[in-house]
């Protein structure tokens, strides 16, 4: 019995060595692997059967190994994938990272004196406080009206300006919900202003949700400060 195992192992090792050649194609390797496995299995089996039948086990092993080696090799070659020729990695000259155009510094940055500060883009902000809509609501409550009317008065005093109405929330609730809520509230305030005679064309609404806090959202006071409607009056 040991003899047959030895024969099988020798055949398997030989076939494995051959199949491991580095410069073979995939199809050749497939053939060799198939042949090795076929030869090992069939050779061993044939030798064992030959011994059981009192025939010459060596001859049976050799015949079985050759026959099955050919069959296994053919199957292995068919199953093997064609070689994919991978071209060597081209040596590419490192392309320098594109240097972003430096953001133009405001002209007022260098050695600026407070008196010389030029207000850029946003001329003024009006922050409406206490516009505390009920949960999930955006309707204007009577107690908000004087605050909105005061804002209207300020806007009327500065005609021909573009105004961005921003809605801001605290971080209570989901980000998506807060974004939608702040948009609805900004739109609600905008509608009130238009009803009071402010030109729709001069108004634009933006909901920032919880994205632009001014105070710490971890405290109740901070959250109250973050809930606000802001008018940005542009140049």
């Amino acid at each position: 019995m040991l003899k047959y195992l030895r024969i099988g192992l020798i055949l398997l090792c030989a076939a494995s060595l051959v199949s491991g050649c580095a410069n073979m194609t995939a199809r050749q390797k497939g053939f060799m692997k198939g042949a090795a496995v076929g030869a090992a299995i069939c050779g061993g089996t044939a030798a064992y059967v030959g011994h059981q039948n009192d025939s010459n086990p060596d001859k049976a092993a050799l015949t079985g190994a050759i026959a099955c080696g050919l069959v296994g090799g053919t199957i292995g070659a068919i199953l093997a994938k064609e070689d994919v020729v991978v071209p060597p990695e081209p040596v590419v000259e490192p392309i320098p990272e594109p240097v972003p155009e430096p953001e133009p510094e405001p002209a007022v940055v260098e050695e600026v004196k407070e008196e010389e500060v030029v207000v850029v883009e946003v001329r003024e902000k009006i922050v409406l406080r206490g516009i505390n809509f009920d949960f999930d609501k955006s309707d204007i409550k009577p107690e908000f009206v004087p605050v909105l009317d005061e804002a209207v008065e300020i806007l009327n005093a500065t005609p021909d300006v573009k105004v961005i109405i921003e809605g801001h929330t605290d971080w209570t609730g989901t980000e998506k919900y807060n974004l939608g809520l702040s948009e609805r509230r900004a739109a609600s305030v905008c509608k009130y202003l238009v009803e009071k005679g402010i030109s729709q064309n001069s108004l634009e609404t933006v909901g920032y949700g919880e994205a632009d806090p001014i105070a710490d959202n971890h405290t109740r006071e901070g959250r109250s400060m973050n809930r606000r409607v802001v008018f940005k009056i542009l140049e």
Binding site: V119, R129, E143
Partner: peptide, 16 residues
Amino acid sequence: GMLTKKIRVTEIFRFT
């Protein structure tokens, strides 16, 4: 810090 921008802010509060 160098001052780069100054924006006038008006906050409106309500007494309720």
